[in-house]
Design a binder for these strands. Sequence first.
DNA 1: GTCTACGCCTAGGCTTTCTAGGTATGAGCC
DNA 2: GGCTCATACCTAGAAAGCCTAGGCGTAGAC
Lengths: 119, 119
Amino acid sequence: MSQEMMRGHLDGLVLAVLIGGPAHGYGLIEALRDRSGGFFDLPEGSVYPALHRLERSGLVASGWSEVGGRRRRVYTLTASGRRAAEQRQSEWRSFSAAVERVFANPGSGQGGTAGAVTS
Amino acid sequence: MSQEMMRGHLDGLVLAVLIGGPAHGYGLIEALRDRSGGFFDLPEGSVYPALHRLERSGLVASGWSEVGGRRRRVYTLTASGRRAAEQRQSEWRSFSAAVERVFANPGSGQGGTAGAVTS
DNA sequence: GTCTACGCCTAGGCTTTCTAGGTATGAGCC
DNA sequence: GGCTCATACCTAGAAAGCCTAGGCGTAGAC
């Protein structure tokens, strides 16, 4: 449903969730599903690589934990990760506003740009 | 600035512009730049392949025109293209709303999901 | 004669996401 | 004991989309 649209936004969404506190991969998937009202139901194969990517970039740090006999890798925002999260959100607002302007604009057309179509 | 975020949204934006009337590639780039307040300044290498893609999908139809000694390929929305344009916009609204929900939600955290970090 | 704006095009590479698998624990059920 | 489900991690490879970096050509200004 929204697979194609995720491009370039996953990292920002993950960082946004981590602003609320540390989380592990599986829980992050649930958090995104819950927060989005079920709209984002991301496969593990998307989220785990994204987390590894963010860790390589220094935006999150991870540590192992054990809960109920199951090991978890818990991710926490770093200082630069927090800055990145805020920047991503402001970029999103700009992007979203720009898209809305394009959608809203009802033509803006001079009407004469097309010329005569010959075939 | 917004290169990564375009993924999956370009087609919808192009279709949105074409709702206002036929346009050619070069003019479409200008229209997107103008309508978005300069935010979308797309390279030709993005827009022309997108138009060809849309034409292959049957969402737009093209015809050649000549204006001032310069040839233009003018693109027009087909019937299914118009439907697709509207659908894209409604999908955008859903997507945008879901992103906003994720950004707005201030934790929603139980706080106890992380467990004790051991290393 | 050169430069800029207009106007079209494509090949190749990069990045990101998804598909489709794999491993392992704990709990509930028969 | 076996089965299944939810939890929890991981990766290789394919698929797709956009950008970079070029190419071609006309018209008009300087």
